[in-house]
């Protein structure tokens, strides 16, 4: 019984620590001006920094219009020939 009780106590301690961090510490950190500014910037820009792949981004990066003007996307270097 004792090891099981010890495990339950350790789990309860860990749960309390997680609750204290997520409900107390992190909201306080979020109020710190540099962090609050970063969060605000991301929200205003519609950025999802937690995206694991591009399909989770709020805005898909689809061939920006300026790129065709500023970058020779398929140019063969030096001979000036463009393939598209």
């Amino acid at each position: 019984m004792m090891p099981r009780l010890g495990g339950t106590l350790r789990l309860a301690t860990a749960a309390l620590a997680l609750a204290a961090i997520w409900l107390g510490v992190l909201p306080a950190v979020g109020r710190w001006p540099p962090v609050a500014r970063h969060v605000r910037r991301m929200e205003e820009g519609g950025v999802n920094p937690a995206a694991m792949v591009y399909s989770e981004l709020d805005r898909l990066p689809l061939r920006p219009r300026w790129a065709a003007e500023e970058l020779a996307l398929w140019r063969v270097a030096r001979d000036g020939v463009e393939n598209r």
Partner: peptide, 15 residues
């Protein structure tokens, strides 16, 4: 490494 972090860093630099 992470796609979302790239978008965030690009946003910071662009701003």
């Amino acid at each position: 490494d992470a796609t979302g972090a790239v978008a965030a860093a690009g946003e910071i630099l662009g701003r």
